[in-house]
Design a protein around this nucleic acid. Structure first.
Lengths: 239, 239
DNA sequence: CCCTTTAAGTGCGCTAGCGCACAGAGCGAT
DNA sequence: ATCGCTCTGTGCGCTAGCGCACTTAAAGGG
């Protein structure tokens, strides 16, 4: 694990000036992110800020009746646990690893000290938070106005952007939980996309066959989020 | 206007330590917020941070086809224009005065300087931002899972919390735009509430007759947002 | 290799909300 | 008082998505 210690696989870390990065480095603890790992629970006090290097983490909100909805997805372009530096210590949502990977984490105390310095790290975390807000608001809009198959396209593209391969491991049941719809609704929507040759679906494995067509079919929400992310987030710099 | 210059009507300003408050005071420019005023447009560069003292401001997102959805409401408990200190300068949403009032604003440059100091102002603004995020995520959830009349209850209560009187001036058409539903849908939902004796509706004027019953009927979303606001935001201090 | 488990597909009746079209109804200006 | 405008109420038919019950089919462990 130590051999492959490359925190700069996380784009935020990668974009930090060398001085800041090196100050952080000794505090970055490598963590593996197995599928299903709950990084934090709704309302629980956060202990670490997570910098994913690979994999995908979902922010989910669970309702009293058990139904749930995905609020945002986070990959190696961001961090998990913004409540730490925003000052609230916890949020009403939970963070779950949706696609296995690995990452690095920073102890709450270290993060807070560094954040208070007010330098590049603070600026980047805040800009990322704004990008995350954009994603959340767009989710709200999409939930209201768009059909399930369009939302599925959006979800697939958002996931694809955070993965290296074009295959993702995810049952329809789980996708339904993310989108906050019925499992059968996902079956139907996925069926449409499969028929149109955009994806292939098989027992928990989705392969995206034709990304361009997916982008044609998706609602505007994906583009808005993407554009805002590109605008707000640093370009990956080679170290 | 100068006679009634009481920026501490805004709860964030009121909660600032005297030293910080007084440093800000000379820069606070009073502004009136007439109904319908667009504080900022989607994508436009922000020039000021607004501290409402009365009235309500809506954050709205408009889609390509003209349909729109409210993302959050802001009253004297918060600020309008968080993108300024988050670093993005603009957002894909727009801010519109939904209920007339007044407030105070700070030039972007002044705000940034003060924010960079990293003191109580920064902490408060970030905590408020987290509360706003909670509101946005809950909106996403509510859009997905709850019936129009429950959402109307939520909307009424959120508005009521930010007003002194129990009457609000708002046509069903406008409410429909906020909730992202049909105007007729609001007519129907409002009819139900009126029949149950919770509200009285008349040509753009809604009077809330029975707030407790409204709170019984509303979905959990209102409570979650309220609780999170109370947790994160400072209690009003007497100056 | 079978047999259990888990994922995916299907059918059917039901309801909420949509789109459209139009009918009262209050309010304000002339 | 009247006209015109805006706001509200209503009545359609239509569709997407829901809830439920069930079948089919692949995967994987004994």
């Amino acid at each position: 694990m130590t051999a492959s210690l490359k925190p700069e696989q996380n784009q935020l870390l990668a974009a930090l000036p060398a001085a800041d990065y090196e100050r952080l480095l000794p505090h970055l603890e490598p963590v593996i992110l197995p599928l299903g790992l709950v990084i934090f629970e709704s309302g629980s006090k956060l202990r670490h800020l997570y910098f994913p290097a690979s994999g995908i983490v979902s922010l989910l909100y669970a309702m009293e009746n058990g139904a749930s909805t995905e609020i945002a997805v986070i990959g190696n372009e961001g961090v998990v646990g913004i409540a730490l530096f925003m000052g609230g210590e916890s949020t009403p949502s939970r963070a779950v690893v949706q696609s296995a990977g690995h990452g690095y984490r920073l102890k709450a105390a270290v993060l807070k000290t560094e954040f208070e310095l007010g330098g590049p790290l603070q600026h980047m975390l805040l800009r990322y938070t704004q990008a995350l807000i954009a994603q959340m608001t767009q989710t709200a809009v999409c939930n209201r106005h768009h059909a399930v198959d369009q939302q599925l396209c959006r979800w697939l593209l958002l996931s694809l952007d955070r993965l290296v391969s074009s295959e993702l491991t995810m049952t329809q049941e789980l996708i339904a939980n993310m989108l906050g719809v019925r499992r059968e609704g996902v079956t139907e929507a996925a069926g449409k996309l499969q028929e149109a040759g955009l994806i292939r679906y098989s027992r928990g494995h989705i392969t995206v066959l034709d990304r361009p067509k997916l982008e044609k079919r998706v609602c505007e929400c994906y583009g808005v989020v993407k554009k805002e992310m590109d605008r707000l987030l640093p370009v990956q710099t080679v170290r």
